[in-house]
Simulated scan of single mutants.
Amino acid sequence: MNTTTEKKIVVGVWPTLVYRDGHAALKFLTEGLGFTQICLYAGDTEGSIAHSELAWPPGGGVMVSSVGRQREQDDFSWLAEHPQSVYLVHDDPDRLLARAIAAGAVVVRGLRDEDYGSRGFTVKDQEGNLWSVGTYRGEIVE
């Protein structure tokens, strides 16, 4: 029996993003935003990604894959028309914004303080997906 008060957090929601260039996405997400790559499984064509998992240091994660030969029958035309969007909680968005820009992010909404107590920004990655970062951790429900 665990006698500490620590609880293991199990991630029950995984945003999943599909990219045309999965390796460029992984580089941006790890070097630009600070994710940690947990695993990577190669796809069926050279350079494609069947599945990868990235951990967000404060908790949670995302899954990333890329379009490969096995997925050719799927219609991924929506990727260009409808960017995907993910919100990340971070204690120091000012510092993270500079890191994201250095990795090639395009600023969509610069740093600002919100009425609900968050400070954050939104950037666009190389394929148009939106990454919003802020200090807001959600409402606490007891």
Rank of each mutant, 00 (worst) to 15 (best):
M1A: 13
T3K: 14
T3H: 06
T4W: 06
T5H: 15
E6P: 10
K7V: 15
K8H: 14
V11Y: 07
G12D: 12
V13Q: 14
V13I: 15
V18M: 12
Y19N: 14
Y19P: 10
Y19T: 10
H23D: 09
A24I: 08
A25Y: 04
A25E: 07
L26E: 02
L29K: 09
L29V: 12
T30C: 12
E31G: 07
L33V: 13
Q37C: 13
I38W: 08
C39D: 11
L40R: 13
L40T: 06
D44H: 07
E46Y: 03
G47A: 13
G47P: 06
A50G: 03
E53P: 00
L54A: 06
W56A: 02
W56P: 00
P57L: 10
P58V: 08
G59D: 04
G61Y: 03
V62T: 00
V62I: 15
V64T: 06
S65V: 02
S66H: 05
V67M: 08
G68W: 03
R69E: 14
R71H: 05
Q73C: 00
F76P: 00
W78A: 11
A80Y: 09
E81H: 09
P83C: 05
Q84T: 06
S85V: 07
L88Q: 04
L88I: 06
H90R: 05
D91P: 01
D92I: 01
P93N: 02
D94V: 00
R95V: 04
A98P: 01
A98M: 02
R99Y: 12
A100G: 09
A102E: 10
A102R: 14
V107P: 08
V107N: 12
V108L: 07
R109P: 00
L111I: 03
L111R: 06
D113I: 00
D115L: 04
S118D: 15
R119L: 02
R119D: 05
K124H: 07
D125E: 04
Q126G: 11
Q126M: 14
G128F: 02
V133Y: 04
T135C: 08
R137L: 11
R137H: 14
V141E: 11
